[in-house]
Write a protein that binds this DNA or RNA. Structure first.
Lengths: 194, 194, 194, 194
DNA sequence: GATGAATGAGGCTTCATTCAT
DNA sequence: TATGAATGAAGCCTCATTCAT
């Protein structure tokens, strides 16, 4: 299994940094190889082509990202706590790896539709986690039971995504994690008085 | 002023269609020229370079988009009505011009960071409109007064954006405008019971 | 029609010389472009890809080659005369354009099967001319009537081809055209006494 | 002597099959190694480089090919019989090893001039055998004594070669060996009446 | 002797942009 | 103004060969 060889991770890590620093379009394979400390050709022993590197970046990192969130959520008692934890973990992980944040929020969105399709597939488990929390919340009578599931999911994911993107574009000048509670409050209580 | 000459608009319109139909990366200048019915070189009499076409697409169309929303909002009495109108108009306009929806939600995001910076500039007035509504809502005691303005704006814009993107990616198979009320309810009342 | 533009012929001519001088595998597109006095990209305004240049070389030159032979043959009275003329013209034309001789006898045979298939298509009319002469000869009772047509064609073409290849590989140190009569005699009378 | 080690022959045999099945250009060293059941690097313990494999293919197989023909010819009484035997053996051997036929008639001709030079050297003994038969035939007064030796040799070899190539390209759908007599008759008696 | 992971040079092609007409 | 033929820079990928084990 190629994924367990050290060079596989070396190249993935190099790719994240190179893309974050140079932008998606200026990230030539040769630049990634150099940063990873391998020859250009070596890349192709581990990846089918350039696109495959990018998909793998997402697979590897998004996989970890979601696994972390799920394991944290499982320690929580109810849907409200779980939602808060999801938000905190989402913000924390991207805060702690700003290269990854730049890549996921800005650079990878420049990829063409074939790649974006792959990326959406990777994203699906995350959306499923959100769905599960909402359904639990409804069962626990914490959330309103007439909620339109896809709409709520879009609100939650859209809000988190937009918040992180803004933070990245403002060059990460403020503490993203600290906003988790407010975002949670907004999503649960809305903006209306009472 | 070049903007008032007929070929300027011809080229912008052609660009929207070509990008929507072919995707950002397969939209060569020559293809846009052909669709616009002009020679390749003519493009450069009206636009500095390819990026300039794309920025102009956004300037022109986003300008109209926002103007429409503002004029509709101004007929509304309070912040709640205005927010609902904004959502409806946002959804309606993109529903009615699906080429534009594809371009704004999917294709233009593939542009590089320079272009995206420009696009964000064009987006600013829209975000300001949202801010204004929120502030009005607080003054009118319709919205909670401890709201974090940027956060609320991100929630609103993030939710609308994600909702439209999902609709585009699902190939516009359902009625987006019909979702305006539910989205409005979610944003104002949150998801919690009570 | 691209074939009538001067650059089309310029590039074909350059390709013949570059391939003859450098060999098939060392004939980069950039080298052909340079010899033709055009930019690399210009090649692709006239040819689909590199292979298309080579097919066109054959189409153009082989077309002329065969046309010349046919028009000369038509002035001859009987099949025997026609066969002699075909041999003479075959030898003469390749003698007079040694670049073309090198390309057809040595370099173009290195092409891959896709290209060789195309080349064989171009060659077909020539083989048909040979067939026609043989059939005429039989009708005129000059040639034996139990002849196996494909076999005779293979003997004639194989002999001419091998003779020219040998001459090219011996670096054209002797007069090829002078051998036409002997070759004709061999083919018609065989090698046996009586 | 490396030639006597089993892996040497293993690799040669693998090369013939791989080239026949994949074509010259798609026959990477790694593919030959795999088919031979050795590691890529092992190839280089037995052959100087890739070209050396191909030259060796010819050396080994052509050597056998010619030896077979010579030993068959020596059993014949006169030049006429010998020529017929040569033709039969030439056709029979390639008929019986169609991989070799594909490689010699089609694929190896794609090699570059350096390699073809080597191949021609291997071919020389065969041409010498032909020459010897012709000279014998003249001495035996079976063949005309004013024959131009190189020319006759080119006719014989060219005819055989073209005949086999046609048979290979027609995907070996007819019996090549059965044509030996007709080809022999053509070469000895020519095509003319009387 | 045998392995196979690693190397890195090399070339075809696209397409935004220019400029002579 | 308008044209469109011509330009030429730039990058992904393959595969013969090496060499540490």
């Amino acid at each position: 299994m190629k994924k367990n060889k050290p060079k596989f991770k070396q190249i993935i890590d190099a790719a994240v940094i190179v893309i974050a620093e140079n932008g998606y379009h200026a990230s030539q394979v040769s630049k990634i190889a150099k940063k990873a400390g391998v020859a250009d050709g070596t890349i192709y022993l581990y990846f089918k082509n350039k696109e495959d590197i990018l998909v793998s970046v997402f697979e590897e990192r998004m996989g970890q990202f979601i696994d972390q969130i799920i394991s944290s959520i499982n320690k929580q008692e109810n849907a409200n706590q779980k939602l808060l934890t999801l938000i905190e973990m989402h913000f924390r992980q991207l805060s702690e790896d700003h290269h990854l944040a730049i890549v996921t929020q800005l650079e990878l969105r420049q990829s063409d539709s074939t790649l974006r399709l792959q990326i959406n597939k990777e994203l699906k488990p995350y959306l499923t986690v959100i769905d599960t929390i909402i359904k639990e919340g409804i069962e626990e009578k914490l959330f309103r039971d007439e909620l339109n599931l896809p709409l709520v999911r879009q609100m939650i994911f859209g809000t988190l995504d937009e918040t992180v993107t803004n933070w990245v574009m403002k060059e990460r000048k403020y503490d993203l994690v600290k906003q988790a509670h407010s975002v949670h409050a907004l999503l649960t209580n809305g903006i209306s008085v009472e």
